[in-house]
Nucleic acid binder design. Structure first.
Lengths: 316, 316
DNA sequence: CCGATAACTTGACTTAGTCAAGTAAATGAT
DNA sequence: ATCATTTACTTGACTAAGTCAAGTTATCGG
């Protein structure tokens, strides 16, 4: 029997699967503990979940609720009937489909939900409160990461945004470039050191009129960057273009290069030049598209490898 | 009415609480989906959870199970009786307490659990498999972070370990030092650049016989570092000692300095020197304890602040 | 216009879990 | 040593919570 998967794609390692299962068990218990606290109310857990959805989203139908909360249609039907009898919800038949109705909380429904909501809020706040503020941030950040990675539909609304450099950025770029090129091309630690040196000099001798750096950020994380430095009155140099593997295909690289070209043009430079290596084909493609021309190549030995360096120029 | 909390400690922000609640709802659903998949087996979800615990931990008593899984004692008692009737478990009364018994899966019990285990494993593997390997790592890492932060009892067994530099480390150190001193003392981006410059030079001119760097790692994360560089035949310099705020109080700083002193001594240096600033009191305390003597102070303006630099020497 | 499907609703049922009372052993304070 | 209290488990009585299947009405696709 053949296992049907692309040959280059291995099954997730047992360690990872086990860690995820351990987390699932842990969180099952965690949610169980939180739910216990809410059980004293007049509503069952499922009822509370339904109320929560209704309080936070408008125009839901019974089917929506059933799908999103994973409830049996029959069960839900009775549950909603009970809510209607208690005047907690109102149903407005859809004009587009007479079988369905848009369900909304009545003011009485909101009143009934408020203490539940508060209890749940306080309980979670109590959990968070045991941690120092920096750890609270880490916790919630990690939760967001888990959620985003598991939830296919949770693509960020803003694919990315560009912003200027902040403290901490250059360290991040140094680390990520060092790791990426070590992983993908086997470059040694001297490449990371080179990036560190370039960026240290960039910051030290930074001239805002003639130079600039851009950070591409997505969901609060750095996913790309690029720098323009002054070589002479006439010539600017584009340096250290990089895009996170997880953020490729969104046009971030192209956009970063466009920003550089626009900046260089606006400042009156005549030429924008850059140095790269022939193996970085994705980057080369971006440069070509932006109008850069290859002006020369030469082999060199750097970062523990034999490489071919390339110079590219764009006349502005 | 007064709120009883230290005045410097604010309640967790509503944003954080809401994000955590959103995650809880999301994960409730996530676990619900995973559980559905296992529902076709002969065992109920709770039965499966009990079997899982028994398969993975030895010497459990009924009370242990009830506590860890949050089960009613009566319910659990019947459940275990059923397992015993099916010869899935055996109970050995404890010699220390005749009321309790150590519960273990029989070989038949393991057989019954195996397909459950496999289904659960495969299902989780299927989820992971939809992500590229790097994202799988991020997911599991984030889960571990969430678990560790929420689980009081889950303190890491190894508080930390020391290791040599790897690719990616210097970028991380640059970032963290830049951020920390910006947060705590308002230093500007030139400090981050200085760290980058120091570390770039360290790597470029690294001489393994005379120089060394140490990384303190905990749970796979960098939590501290220090470097020794050669100034002359006689004099070595300790540089860039740092410990993550979250990892302070474990003696990591002290240990890092001790490593430096030991290394400097072993290599035959006569003096270990260092430069620091008077506001860094925690570090100063470590240096004093290690035997360093203050040899001079002088004010300087750096990193956007007026500071007082200090030189410390240790005669070896 | 008609067969298939979707959105509920209702009735009949089960299971998973709760609660309280009870027993035997262990613990702790005299 | 002893006796009240607590702990570990058991048992009986109960029900909330959820499932399943069949039915009704409306919509959809050809």
């Amino acid at each position: 029997m053949t296992i049907h998967r692309p040959p280059d794609k291995a099954a997730p390692s047992k360690d990872l699967v086990d860690a995820m299962r351990a987390f699932n068990r842990f969180y099952t218990r965690q949610i169980g503990l939180l739910d216990e606290g809410l059980l004293k109310s007049a509503f069952s857990l499922t009822e509370a979940r339904v109320l929560y959805e209704l309080a936070h989203r408008d125009g839901l139908t019974a089917t929506d609720l059933g799908r999103d909360l994973g409830l049996d249609a029959g069960y839900l039907s009775r549950l909603l009937k009970k809510f209607e009898r208690l005047h907690l919800i109102s149903r407005a038949p859809l004009v587009s489909d007479a079988r369905q109705a848009s369900i909304a909380l009545t003011p009485a429904g909101r009143n009934a939900f408020a203490p539940l909501d508060k209890d749940s809020h306080d309980q979670v706040a109590g959990l968070l409160d045991r941690l120092p503020a920096s750890e609270q941030d880490r916790l919630v950040k990690s939760m967001r990461t888990v959620q985003r990675l598991l939830d296919d539909s949770a693509e960020p609304k803003v694919p990315y945004l560009l912003r200027p450099l902040q403290v901490g950025d250059i360290g991040w770029i140094i680390r990520r470039q060092g790791l990426l090129y070590a992983q993908d091309y086997g470059w040694d630690e001297t490449y990371e050191a080179l990036v560190a040196e370039i960026l240290a000099n960039f910051v030290k001798s930074f001239d805002p009129k003639w130079e600039r750096g851009w950070i591409a950020e997505r969901e609060g994380e750095v996913v790309g960057s690029v720098f323009v430095v002054r070589k002479s009155d006439q010539v600017a140099k584009l340096r250290l273009l990089y895009v996170e593997p997880s953020a490729r295909g969104l046009g971030i690289g192209k956009r970063l290069v466009e920003e550089c070209v626009g900046f260089a043009r606006a400042r009156g430079y005549k030429t924008l030049t850059l140095w790269t290596n022939d193996i970085l084909t994705a980057a080369r493609h971006i440069y070509q598209t932006a109008g850069f021309k290859l002006t020369g190549e030469e082999p060199h030995h750097s970062f523990g490898k034999d490489l071919v360096g390339q110079n590219w120029d764009l006349e502005l």
